[in-house]
Write a protein that binds this DNA or RNA. Structure first.
Lengths: 175, 175
DNA sequence: GTCTATAATTTGATAGAC
DNA sequence: GTCTATCAAATTATAGAC
């Protein structure tokens, strides 16, 4: 709280005029982030595009939140398990939001598999988790002004995710 | 410290008979982990196999540490930046170890590109970071006894990483 | 090698003046 | 809306008995 107040240019006691607790600050940061994220996912999904296009767009949306929602993504990374373990039900919406997001991703992965755009021999849920992790953990090393911006990260990842690092006869490698 | 002592079945004061500070505990946990990890990477690299085989093995090694080195991986995830920021130089070896590990991975990626096993239009360093993140963050949700063991996670990831999620004419998708 | 007791510091939060 | 002053609890660490 003292560090937050210092960043804001006031003393820690003054923070309690704006928020009634540390949890309330976290709450506002996370709600804003999740509402924005889910809304943008919905737009991508409702675009009517094929699964591969939608999934690529969702990857781009994810990376694009790293800058505007850096604090939220960091808190999600570091304190997710802690916030969920709190005795009050204050952060129950986190699980609700995560479940909805997971459903969105998995639906697109399954739709792509059904349409023959994605290979059928991967587990949709596990694949979602790995995509999710890759995007959000980038907040730990990503710094604005570096060699690549979030859009560049997204394009690189989409390339590897969809087409793979390897070169060669795809079919013969699918055992 | 109280929680660690409780897990050990003693009181917190008694811990200081075995370690002179909290940092010393973290230090021992991380050193053990990094020595094991680097040694196993070296074995894989010195096997003389082609880059693709070595890289797949390095992925397997990474996932296989999630169970035996769960505490270390968790601390690396949560406290890496903090440990590096400490005024004393006690954890300088973390950066040294990370640099060495990064060199190992990037060398294999570049070797695979030179040999035509990996596509040349991906950034080796960025690709390494994404592989690294995907492996280690799994510690946050991976629980022994679940649907998949670490070896299963590794095989799934190797499949997606090398061959991609997509199906179709690879060349036409490389713009 | 562990316990009891306690020191020293950090941290979230409050009361009331201005 | 911010500051001063301070509280209460938590947390790392120490001293000395057993």
């Amino acid at each position: 709280m003292r560090e937050i107040a210092e960043e804001a240019g006031i003393l820690s006691g003054s923070l309690y005029h704006h928020f009634d607790s540390k949890e309330s600050i976290v709450d506002e940061v996370l709600r804003t982030f999740l509402e924005d994220l889910v809304a943008r996912y919905r737009v991508a999904i409702q675009s009517g595009s094929d699964a591969r296009t939608v999934l690529a767009e969702m990857v781009r949306i994810g990376f694009s939140t790293l800058e505007p929602h850096r604090a939220a993504v960091t808190v999600m990374q570091n304190d997710w398990n802690y916030l969920r373990s709190l005795p009050d039900n204050r952060f129950d919406y986190l699980v609700k939001a995560e479940d909805e997001v997971e459903r969105m991703w998995i639906e697109q992965i399954k739709r792509g598999q059904a349409a023959g755009q994605f290979r059928g021999d991967v587990d949709p849920k596990l694949t979602y988790r790995m995509i999710r992790d890759t995007i959000w953990v980038a907040v730990r090393w990503f710094r604005p002004g570096g060699r690549l911006n979030p859009a560049g990260l997204a394009e690189h990842y989409v390339k590897v995710l969809f087409d793979g690092l390897g070169i060669g006869d795809r079919v013969s490698q699918q055992v």
